[in-house]
Design a protein around this nucleic acid. Structure first.
Lengths: 338, 338
DNA sequence: ACGCTTTCTGAAAGCGCTTTCAGATGAATC
DNA sequence: GATTCATCTGAAAGCGCTTTCAGAAAGCGT
């Protein structure tokens, strides 16, 4: 009943080509030399029998899964496809498979879902994996690289992320140079790496212009529309005075737009708004959003590169910061930049 | 050297619990009864040794991979994350792993990338898999379900998609009821299932109002901005007369907006525009886009449900059409609908 | 022609599980 | 108490590969 899909095995090929299975394995893997004519016969047999080696058998015998795992907490946000695309492309170029795992906290975990038993290495996005699990994997020296998250204290795990601080600072500087002084900052999720660095950029830019930091202007955006919407709404209800909003990211700025429009505040005349990421819709919302371009796809590719280096026993860079770039459109008050 | 990650195996557990590996296996799988006290001892041993069964070994022995594959041609379009989310969630609820594979045509395929050897079933999105490969898998009775694509002639493979025809017809009817008569339709990619049905809806709506179909009004949108932009630009240059555009999908309508704005045609006063999908940005572009809501995440979940049915030897529905819903905003000329 | 490398090859031993099969155990029946 | 059954359990045989190991074949120098 379970034998439905069994097709040719390595010994069928061996028989067909008149060699031993060891030889077949050798031409399959190409690491050990095989006489040209035999190799050719084997290749023919493989073609004729339409033989495909079972990954499970290979994995069991070689202890290499040939797949890497991607762990993240939730599929959300317009940047996600780009990340995935970069990872997928780079990975498959190298001949690896991609196992995708999303750690919804509410999911009952039946068995250890992803780790050293079913992957050769892990790509971890932000805070999707608990510190203890990271520590455990680190202890057994399991290859992994983190994206948009610094490793726990004392662990030397490669990190790929974008220039969050610089990007944020560019944005806020730009706002300040446009005469904005009361700039709201919408934080991302609690403990979120990106958010921390963006806040630092925000603070540094303020400090550089001698504008005091005002806790009242900082609120939670959670990097999503809904929370951002409510945050801004609340600020308005509370009568907080502000003339600009750094939304945390582009998704959040959507919520900001909505709250502002409902309150009949004009963008950018009354309130300038800037995002972060430069996702597709940023240029098409109205007014077009000034933001910072984060090379997300490149982050994915780079993460894979570093992980592959690790897998090959090479040294990986412990930190790769991808450059961000200010994209000026109209929501900051600059005209004619669409 | 490759033994880095070896930890406890089933025989360690067996020894530790004073039973045979067969018994351990049985408590692991829970299909065969085991005396309560022994089972308890085994469970303790598993916990103490931190034992996790190797999937490769299980797969090899049982011929079940416990993972299903998702195949698609390109990670693109704002709806993709939703699809993936639905699939991922539903799948992991059922305890399956997700192997993701994108078939860029330009990728050198090293080995058969995805199929019966490394998955228990396949989720195929649109035209990502060649007809021959589908036929081959179908012939060996390999479980799969298609999303947004009908199977080749004579093959009974479950299909999950949305009410493309109805959705398109609703859109076009709405346009016509607003007095539009010269309605451009931007086709999707050649051979794309969704596109075919949307065109049918378009034609039926025209026919229902006795408006003759005009080939000159149909052009290629490819479901992306760029192509849509050029298509509309060309129509304008060619002096084709039109008062509305059914963009094919929301992504394409972005391109339509751009071309129209460049040509100083007002939306919706001069030209009404409607999309398809209702992705996030649809409500935030200016003017807010009238479109049809396609329950993409639900398509993903349903596809998984049907595939799981197939895997359990149950009968799957051969066609599931998810209902679409007209979302009226402003780009069609309706006021106050934001 | 003889030893000595060097290169290639097959036998066989696993990799860590599942699953069959036959046997052990104890309960139930007469 | 003997017989029959229903339950549970362990030994052992694979699943389909990779990899070691030792031997065969072929090349080389003298």
């Amino acid at each position: 009943m379970n034998h439905k899909f069994t097709s040719a095995t390595i010994s069928d090929v061996a028989k067909h080509a008149g060699v031993s299975i060891a030889t077949v394995s050798r031409v399959l893997n190409g690491k050990t030399p095989v006489q040209a004519d035999k190799a050719e016969r084997v290749r023919q047999a493989i073609a004729e029998l339409n033989f495909v080696p079972r990954p499970a058998a290979r994995t069991l015998a070689s202890r290499k899964t040939n797949t890497i795992g991607l762990v993240f907490s939730e599929i959300r946000g317009a940047f996600f496809p780009h990340l995935l695309k970069g990872i997928e492309a780079q990975l498959h170029e190298a001949g690896y498979e991609l196992l995708v795992y999303s750690t919804h906290s509410d999911r009952p975990i039946k068995r250890k879902p992803i780790g050293e038993h079913n992957t050769d290495g892990l790509l971890v996005f932000t805070t999707s994996l608990e510190k203890e699990e990271i520590a455990r994997l680190y202890k057994i020296n399991f290859p992994m690289v983190l994206m948009h998250e610094t490793p726990p204290e004392g662990m030397n795990i490669p990190v790929i992320t974008v220039e969050n601080k610089d990007g944020a600072a560019m944005l806020v500087n730009h706002l300040i140079e446009h005469g904005r002084r009361r700039i709201v900052f919408l934080r991302g999720p609690e403990g979120h790496e990106d958010s921390v660095w963006r806040e630092r950029g925000y603070r540094e830019a303020l400090a550089a212009h001698n504008i005091p930091f005002d806790e009242a202007l900082v609120s939670s955006g959670e990097f999503d529309q809904e929370t951002a919407y409510h945050a801004i709404k609340k600020l308005i209800q509370d009568g907080v005075d502000f003339d600009a909003v750094f939304a945390g990211d582009d998704d959040a700025s959507i919520g900001v737009y909505r709250a502002l429009k409902e309150a009949r505040r004009l963008i950018p005349a009354d309130v300038a708004v800037v995002g972060f990421d430069d996702v597709e819709f940023a240029r098409y919302i109205s007014p077009p959003l000034t933001t910072v371009r984060a090379p997300i796809e490149e982050v994915g590719r780079e993460a894979v590169r570093q992980l592959l280096a690790l897998l090959n026993g090479e040294q990986a860079q412990s930190l790769v910061l991808k450059r961000t770039e200010l994209v000026i459109r109209e929501s900051c008050g600059c005209p004619n930049h669409s």
